[in-house]
């Protein structure tokens, strides 16, 4: 375990060094991240000024959701997506062999292949937006609510990561997947608003098929203290099951890659 923690730290440092290789891009990237996070607030401001409302969600509550979304997006863009792009590249160039020959867990190695350090800014901005929502509400989440929300954050991260593993596994069958990362991200954009803005079949899909509700709406509700514990528990269980399936598929994919029937 300690060995993996050290490895993790080393991979993180390597990513930072790589980022610093292109100085100009590195600086602009940081600024752009900040700009994007703040621009995300603009529609919300327009929304409020026009006196619009989403049933069940006041403006401060919407802020909490958007803040949570920003936080999670920072997490994906910073820790999940870059590695996805790296591993797809490995598969295409045939250098995944080197990873498989390392005496460490291959899933761990590919999942920590690359980080985008600047995305920490998004996470911080997200926390700030969430916080400002609570300032407007004039109250703070209880310890229990916070714990529940954190638990759901872990679940959401797990679901995202598992989706990622599934996507990578798919790359063993279909080689050209560069675009898939972008597709993945653009679908995640639907989690920007509370799931209640969708109706009918779309809401069902975003709750159960592509569980976007689990990622932003439920944790926000937990923070706000409006989530029923049973729903939360179900969400956590679902996330765990999903992760187990993803791990299984990954093992199958690697076995297939090495037994290489074609």
């Amino acid at each position: 375990m300690r060995r993996y923690a050290r490895l993790f730290a080393l991979q993180l440092r390597t990513s930072l060094q790589t980022g610093l290789q292109y100085r100009w891009d590195f600086v602009v990237e940081g600024l752009t991240g900040l700009l994007f996070a703040l621009l995300g607030l603009l529609p919300l401001w327009v929304f409020k000024r026009n006196g619009a409302a989403v049933p069940g969600w006041g403006f401060p509550e919407m802020l909490v959701v958007v803040g949570w979304f920003t936080l999670l997006k920072g997490l994906i863009d910073g820790a999940v997506n870059p590695s996805l792009i790296v591993v797809v590249d490995h598969i295409r160039r045939g250098t995944l062999d080197f990873v498989l020959l390392k005496p460490a867990d291959a899933q761990f190695l590919v999942s920590t292949g690359k980080f985008e350090p600047w995305r920490v800014l998004d996470v911080l901005v997200g926390v700030a937006i969430c916080g400002s929502g609570f300032v407007l509400l004039g109250r703070w989440p209880g310890a229990l609510d916070l714990a529940g929300a954190l638990l759901l954050l872990v679940s959401a991260a797990l679901v995202l990561y598992s989706t990622w593993i599934l996507v990578v596994s798919a790359a063993f069958w279909v080689v050209r997947l560069d675009n898939l990362a972008y597709l993945f991200m653009s679908i995640f954009d639907f989690a920007r608003w509370p799931v209640t803005v969708f109706r009918g079949a779309v809401r069902f899909a975003f709750t159960f098929i592509i569980p976007l509700a689990l990622m932003t709406t439920y944790p926000s509700m937990a923070l706000l203290g409006t989530l029923r514990p049973a729903t939360g528990a179900l969400a956590v269980a679902g996330a765990l099951g999903y992760a187990a399936v993803a791990r299984l598929v990954w093992r199958r994919a690697i076995a297939r890659y090495t037994s290489a029937s074609s």
Partner: peptide
């Protein structure tokens, strides 16, 4: 690693192989 000096890859491999 393409963008970094080989010495960094060496260091990484040292950790991976403990």
């Amino acid at each position: 690693l393409w963008d970094l000096p080989p010495a960094d890859t060496f260091e990484l491999n040292r950790a991976v192989y403990s």
